[in-house]
Amino acid sequence: MADGKVSDFTQFREGVVDNNPVLVQLLGMCPALAVSNTLENAIVMGGAATFVVVMSNLVTSLLRHQIKPHVRILIFTLTISTFVTIADLFLRAHLFDVSRKLGPFVPLIIVNCMIISRAEVVAIRNGLKRSLADAFGIGVGFTLALSVVGVIREILGSGTLLNYPVTPAAFEPHLWIIMVLPPGAFLTLGVIIGIVNYVRQRDRKGGAA
């Protein structure tokens, strides 16, 4: 993945599609389940995580020649928790209502394996441009995955999209109330991952034939 022949754009696209952190790598599942009950929450959460992964890759890539191997995890953790705190303060100052709904899941970006794995796999051994392309790819991929779950759960569970009613009057969202409850999150994500697997397995078979 990190060889010189791959272009920066490919690195970006890999993060969004082939290597999608949530749907393919199965990292960052907790927020994908917890804050995907509405599209708004999903987008804000995705934005915060994108900011953190971009800043973490930026700092790691800039300092990659100075970081001693056995303190690297400590440095990654320090960097990530710093930028998570900044993101959290920013949300509480400028998007107060959403930040209350996200609850502990903004600070929990600290332990999101997706972010530390980007620093470890890409940023510490690649230049600035490549690391940033990778971070944006992962960030956008994460946001997209959350949004897909968010759209399904918000439309079925509340009959709205970004808080605007979108379903016909005959549709009764209270019959689908399960979608905004915890089980709905597990079931939706399980089905989506099943579909993604199905498409990937079919593509692989098609490519081999």
Binding site: V71, I75, L78
Partner: peptide
């Protein structure tokens, strides 16, 4: 030598 970076970053 090993830890100056951690301290400075901290």
């Amino acid at each position: 030598e090993e830890s100056w970076l951690v301290l400075v970053m901290g």
